[in-house]
């Protein structure tokens, strides 16, 4: 057991992920890119949901803002990805700061409703502001970043542009997850968990609960924005439905499905949901119906998510050996 624990699993997974394009399937690379980006999106939401105990129904706002920021900068202003990508995080973080300032003044369901309200306002602006966002039609043909230099890398020379973008995505997502993981394991992260557990008591140990909630909200928003920045390019376009409430509920479902009590739970949720989606839509058009059914079963069978269920199973296996 302890030997297995010492292996840096996250690193192994990242290296393995870098070999997906080597399988030669355009489809696998496509799904893997989608999973990587949405995994980051879901893990960013979990900083609020699982660590701080805040339910956001409007997390897609920051994802969408990031996507539009990168898209507009790269397509209309010709700004290179190297700047347009961090800009997505900064801009989404700034919006999260402004919206969050109001949201953290409310609690529980009122907090959730206000996050939704702000997200719908962002959606309405994206939908109507034709000159900047392309309005209802969105903004197609976001260029790929210039990744020609990758051709000089060993092994990566034969790959397509979409494969190159995938490799970039894996590295950036891994870096973002590493940062989030550090944050979660920091003294700040510990204080967030006290807020989740008991905000009233947290106040009495000297924690300015609203301020900490706001900081968490900004960090989560910024990382959602970075995920959005990648997603617009991956999707070859940015559209208002990135910001729509259904996108917020989708990421919420991924996060809960994977398990909010685990750092990588939401990432697993993203993987499972996207793969199921791909598989099932190729057999039937009743995806929403099937999705609903799967969710109900999972929520009752695995109330702490897929990772929670796996964790419990692993513990059960480990116990008799110790005795």
């Amino acid at each position: 057991m302890s030997g297995l624990r010492r292996i840096p699993w996250a690193l192994v997974l990242v290296v393995a992920a870098l070999f997906v394009p080597a399988l030669g399937s355009r489809f696998y690379t496509f799904v893997a890119t989608d999973v990587a980006i949405l995994a980051l999106f879901a893990v960013s939401l979990n900083l609020l949901l699982g660590y701080t105990g805040l339910v956001s129904f409007g997390h897609a706002a920051y994802f969408g803002i990031g996507a539009y920021a990168t898209g507009i900068l790269m397509k209309k202003a010709g700004i290179p990805f190297l700047l347009a990508f961090p800009a997505a995080g900064v801009l989404a973080g700034l919006f999260a700061l402004v919206f969050g300032f109001f949201c953290v003044r409310l609690t529980k369901i009122y907090f959730a409703m206000l996050t939704l309200a702000f997200a719908q306002i962002v959606w309405a602006i994206c939908f109507k502001w034709n000159d900047v966002t392309g309005g209802e039609q969105g903004m197609p043909e976001i260029p790929y970043p210039d990744l020609a230099w990758m051709e000089r890398l060993p092994l990566a020379g034969q790959l397509r542009t979409s494969d190159h973008f995938y490799l970039l995505t894996v590295v950036l997502v891994a870096a973002c997850l590493w940062v989030l993981r550090r944050i979660v394991g920091s003294p700040f992260g510990r204080i967030l968990t006290t807020i989740r557990e008991n905000p009233e008591r947290a106040e009495f140990i000297g924690v300015n609960v609203r301020r900490f909630e706001l900081i968490a909200f900004v960090i989560a928003g910024a990382f959602a924005g970075l995920a959005g920045g990648l997603f617009g390019i991956f999707n070859r376009g940015v559209f208002p439905d990135f910001v729509y409430w259904s996108k917020s509920s989708e990421v919420l479902i991924m996060t809960i499905l994977g398990g909010i009590g685990y750092f990588y739970g939401p990432a697993v949720g993203a993987l499972v949901l996207l793969v199921l989606n791909q598989q099932i839509t190729s057999y039937t058009q009743y995806w929403p119906f099937i999705l609903g059914t799967i969710l109900i079963v999972l929520l009752f069978a695995f109330p702490s998510g897929i990772v929670g269920a796996l964790d419990a199973a692993a513990r059960r296996l480990a116990r008799p050996r110790r005795a």
Partner: peptide, 22 residues
């Protein structure tokens, strides 16, 4: 962790985002 959180907050380390808390 319950007690440790009290020390973290009181000694002003709550905004430390990058040290390890363990």
């Amino acid at each position: 962790q319950n007690v440790q959180a009290g020390f973290i907050s009181h000694r002003g380390r709550g905004l430390d985002l990058f040290s390890r808390v363990g």
